[in-house]
Simulated assay, not measured.
Amino acid sequence: MTENGPKLLEINPRLPGYCSRSYILQLYGVDLVVCAFLISCGIKPVLPNQLHADGHIMGVMCVASIHGLALKTPEIEKQIKMLSLNKEIGYFSIYDESFLIKSKTGMDYLCGNIYVKEHDLEAAKRKLLKVCDDLGINTPEYPIF
Rank of each mutant, 00 (worst) to 15 (best):
K7S: 10
K7V: 12
L9R: 14
L9C: 11
R14N: 07
G17M: 10
S20P: 00
S20M: 11
R21N: 11
S22T: 13
S22K: 11
I24D: 00
L25T: 09
Y28N: 03
L32R: 02
L32G: 00
L32F: 02
V34N: 12
A36C: 06
A36G: 04
A36T: 05
A36R: 06
F37W: 07
L38Y: 03
S40E: 04
G42V: 04
L47G: 03
L51Q: 08
A53E: 05
D54I: 06
I57L: 10
V60F: 03
M61R: 08
M61G: 00
L69F: 14
A70V: 09
A70I: 09
K72Y: 10
Q79M: 08
I80G: 01
L85C: 05
E88W: 00
Y91F: 08
F92Q: 01
I94D: 01
D96Q: 13
F99K: 13
L100D: 15
L100I: 15
L110C: 10
C111G: 04
G112H: 03
G112I: 03
Y115P: 00
Y115R: 00
K117A: 07
E118K: 11
H119E: 14
H119F: 10
H119V: 11
D120Q: 10
A123V: 04
R126Q: 15
R126N: 15
R126S: 15
L129A: 13
V131E: 01
C132F: 04
D133E: 11
D134H: 03
L135I: 04
G136P: 02
G136V: 03
I137R: 02
I137C: 03
E141K: 15
E141N: 13
P143Q: 04
I144E: 01
F145P: 09
